[in-house]
């Protein structure tokens, strides 16, 4: 293993980068939602409360991780380790600093991203079933229901760029993106974003961990380090899907004026603002309404969108070369 690989695994875009992102985005979300709520948000620790998340992480780490009685402790405790590992793996498929900078060079980058993001909810479903708690099991059932119905629109919309550019190589997609392709792919992006909200259990689809209904869903029995690991998994998922949207639809690291990692970061933060905006203004849906929305509106629309992409490829971009 070369020194460069070690740096990639441990620092950027590996462990440290993801931890810093988790800490930063946690704070960013809290500050932003406080702005929407007319509150102050984290305030006392560090500049504008920026140290608050670090302190919270430290606090959670010192808490006892309780394993409930009468369950399989291996299942209960392995998933909090597996979940963040699986969540950060797709980071290796994203070109973080320009074309060709992904760690794993493959022709099937898009597919890998879809699979790694799509498999995560099934792990969380296992946390629900391994907890031996009524609310956790209900949360687990809800995750399954939601994943099954949201995953199809998710991968169909994520495959739209692959269809347009005729490749699944992420770097090629980035290098071939122009303003025109971004405009053509914009409907796909909207569908992608909606289904991502569903896959990642974000409002208005935060049905599996609906606090007012089933306490904390699949998280209910988790505490201490286990809980922190699951939360880090959630935030690395955000990192991956935001980066995925930036890379697939908006040219990743490429901007109008300069190309750099910060371009991608900026695009990701805009998506984060969008997500928090939705969280601050939209009530949660009911399970049946989510199912209805997904199967009778979202899925047909993604199929239509694919047809539109094919149409655009033939008539705007001059067909298959």
């Amino acid at each position: 293993m070369s020194g460069e690989q070690l740096f990639q695994i441990l620092v950027f875009p590996g462990m440290l980068f993801i931890l810093v992102w988790a800490v930063f985005v946690f704070w960013f979300f809290r500050k932003l939602i406080a702005l929407f709520h007319k509150r102050v948000g984290p305030h006392y620790n560090g500049y504008m409360g920026s140290m608050q998340t670090l302190y919270d992480f430290a606090k959670i780490l010192t808490k006892e991780s309780i394993t409930p009685k009468g369950i399989n402790p291996y299942l209960f405790s392995t998933i909090p380790i597996l979940a963040p590992l699986l969540a950060i793996t797709p980071v290796a498929f994203i070109p973080w600093s320009g074309v060709g900078s992904e760690i794993v060079h493959t022709e099937y980058g898009v597919l890998a991203l879809i699979v790694f993001v799509g498999v995560e909810p099934f792990l969380l479903f296992l946390t629900g079933f391994g907890s031996n708690n009524k609310y956790s099991i209900l949360g687990g059932i809800r995750i399954l229901t939601q994943t099954v119905s949201m995953e199809t629109p998710f991968f169909l919309s994520a495959l739209a760029p692959a269809l347009l550019f005729g490749t699944m190589n992420v770097s090629e997609i980035v290098s071939e993106t122009t303003l025109l392709t971004s405009i053509v792919l914009f409907p796909s992006f909207i569908l992608f974003f909606i289904s991502v909200l569903g896959v990642l259990e974000q409002p208005p689809f935060n049905i599996p961990d609906a606090e007012q209904e089933i306490v904390y869903g699949f998280y209910t029995e988790y505490s201490g380090t286990n809980y922190l690991l699951l939360k880090i998994a959630e935030f690395s998922e955000f990192l991956v899907v935001f980066a995925m949207a930036g890379v697939l639809f908006f040219g990743g690291t490429e901007c109008f004026f300069f190309d750099s990692f910060f371009c991608l970061l900026l695009k990701m933060l805009i998506l984060a603002v969008l997500m928090i905006g939705i969280r601050a203004t939209t009530p949660r849906l009911r399970v049946s309404q989510m199912l209805n929305f997904s199967w009778s509106y979202l899925l047909p629309l993604t199929l239509l969108n694919l047809a539109f992409i094919l149409f655009a490829k033939i008539y705007i971009f001059g067909g298959v070369q």
């Binding site: 929407f36 709520h37 007319k38 509150r39 409002p203 935060n206 609906a210 606090e211 007012q212 601050a280 203004t281 939209t282 009530p283 949660r284």
Partner: peptide, 15 residues
């Protein structure tokens, strides 16, 4: 609105 997982109105009304 809090019962639907949206706390914005709660905060605004408290204000």
């Amino acid at each position: 609105f809090g019962t639907m997982g949206l706390h914005t109105l709660q905060m605004w009304a408290m204000d």
